[in-house]
C-alpha cells in the first residue's frame, strides 16, 4: 500500500510540472483578456521567455560557472523581461493601432520560434542551448518534506518553479479582485466606455494587462522547459502549451480558481500514462501510448462540453477601444 501512495505522490508531483506552467500562462491570458485584449500570442510569448531565458542562463553558466537556483532566478527575471518586451508588439498593435487582435497574435506566434532559431544560429552557430537544469533540482526541503501527503508531493524532488507558481496564483487573485488596479483592469474588459467615463485611462490599463500577460507567459515558457530538459533546442517550441493554456483559460471561464482546477486536472490526466502500473485495471486494458496521450485532450473537451453553456468571457475582449461607441 505504501508503494501505491509513493507512486501516486510521484505522479501528482510530476503532474505539477505540467500544471504550473499551464496555470501561469493561463493567468497571463487572464490579465490580457480581462483588460479587453484577446491574447492568442501566449504561445509565442512563452517561446520568447523560454528561449531568451535559457539563452542567458546558458551564457552565464559557461562564462562564470554559476549554477543552482540563483541562476534559475536570474533566468526567470530575464524570461519575464523578454516576455514583456515581446508583448509590447501585441499591445501596440491592439491598443494604439486598433488592429485585429487575432491577426497580431498569430503573427507573434509565427514570429517567436522562427526568430529563436534564427538568433540562436546567428549568435552561437548552433540551434541548441545548454544550461545546467539539473542544478535547479531541489532534492528535499528540510523539515517541510516531513509533512504528510503535502511533503512528498511539494517538498521533495521538485523545482522552485512550483512555489513561484503558487505565489503567482495567489498574487494574481489578490491583484485582480482585491485591489483598485484589478477592478479598473476588469472594467476595461467589460465596458471600456464606462470605465473611461469614470476617469480610467483605458489605453494604459490595456497596456498594463498585455504587459503583465507577456511577463507571466515568458516566465511560464521557462518553467515549461526547465523540468523537461537542459538542452533547449532545434525548433524552439513549447509544443503547443500556449494554446493549451488558452484552452485552460477559456474552460476556466476567465476565473483564477477554475483555471487552477482545470490545469491540475489536465496535468494529472496527462500523466495518467505513468499510472498504468498502479491501477491493474488500466494496465490490463493494454492501451497504446497514443490513446493514453490523447486522453487529457478528450477529457478537457468533455469537461468543456458540459460546462460551457454559460460563457463568462469578458464582454469587450477582442474589441479595440472606440471612445465614440456606446
Amino acid at each position: 500500500m505504501t508503494e501505491f501512495f509513493d507512486v501516486l505522490f510521484n505522479v501528482t508531483r510530476i503532474s505539477l510540472f505540467v500544471a504550473v506552467p499551464l496555470v501561469i500562462v493561463a493567468l497571463a491570458g487572464l490579465f490580457s483578456e480581462r483588460s479587453g485584449v484577446v491574447n492568442i500570442a501566449l504561445e509565442g510569448m512563452m517561446v520568447m521567455g523560454a528561449f531568451i531565458g535559457a539563452f542567458v542562463m546558458g551564457i552565464i553558466a559557461t562564462r562564470t560557472g554559476l549554477e543552482g537556483n540563483l541562476l534559475f532566478i536570474i533566468g526567470m527575471i530575464v524570461a519575464i523581461a523578454a516576455g514583456m518586451a515581446f508583448s509590447l508588439f501585441h499591445a501596440y498593435a491592439s491598443v494604439n493601432m486598433k488592429a485585429n487582435q487575432i491577426i497580431s497574435g498569430t503573427a507573434l506566434n509565427l514570429f517567436a520560434p522562427a526568430f529563436a532559431v534564427f538568433m540562436a544560429n546567428a549568435i552561437t552557430g548552433f540551434s541548441k542551448i545548454k544550461y545546467p537544469a539539473i542544478s535547479f533540482f531541489v532534492r528535499e526541503v528540510p523539515l517541510l518534506s516531513k509533512i504528510p501527503v503535502l511533503g512528498p508531493i511539494m517538498f521533495t524532488k521538485t523545482y522552485i518553479s512550483v512555489y513561484v507558481g503558487i505565489f503567482i496564483l495567489i498574487a494574481a487573485y489578490i491583484v485582480l479582485y482585491k485591489t483598485r488596479f484589478g477592478l479598473r483592469l476588469r472594467s476595461c474588459g467589460e465596458h471600456p466606455q464606462a470605465a473611461d467615463a469614470a476617469g480610467i485611462n483605458v489605453y494604459k490599463m490595456r497596456y498594463a494587462g498585455v504587459l503583465i500577460s507577456g511577463a507571466l507567459a515568458g516566465l511560464g515558457g521557462l518553467f515549461y522547459i526547465v523540468p523537461i530538459t537542459g538542452n533547449y533546442d532545434a525548433s524552439f517550441s513549447v509544443s503547443g502549451y500556449g494554446f493549451l493554456a488558452l484552452a485552460v483559460l477559456i474552460s476556466g471561464q476567465w476565473k483564477p480558481k477554475r483555471i487552477l482546477i482545470i490545469a491540475l486536472l489536465f496535468g494529472f490526466a496527462s500523466k495518467v500514462s505513468t499510472m498504468t502500473s498502479l491501477i491493474p485495471a488500466l494496465g490490463n486494458l493494454d492501451l497504446s501510448t497514443e490513446v493514453l496521450r490523447l486522453f487529457p485532450y478528450v477529457a478537457t473537451l468533455v469537461v468543456l462540453a458540459f460546462t460551457s453553456k454559460n460563457s463568462q468571457a469578458p464582454r469587450a475582449a477582442g474589441e479595440p477601444y472606440d471612445p465614440g461607441k456606446r
Binding site: 492568442i40 503547443g240 494554446f243 493549451l244 488558452l246 484552452a247 477559456i250 474552460s251 485532450y297 478528450v298 478537457t300 473537451l301 468543456l304 462540453a305 458540459f306 460551457s308 453553456k309 454559460n310 460563457s311
Partner: peptide
C-alpha cells in the same frame, strides 16, 4: 453546447 471553437479545435 457553446464550446469555444478555438479551444475545441486545438484539442482536436
Amino acid at each position: 453546447l457553446n464550446v469555444h471553437e478555438v479551444v475545441a479545435t486545438i484539442m482536436l
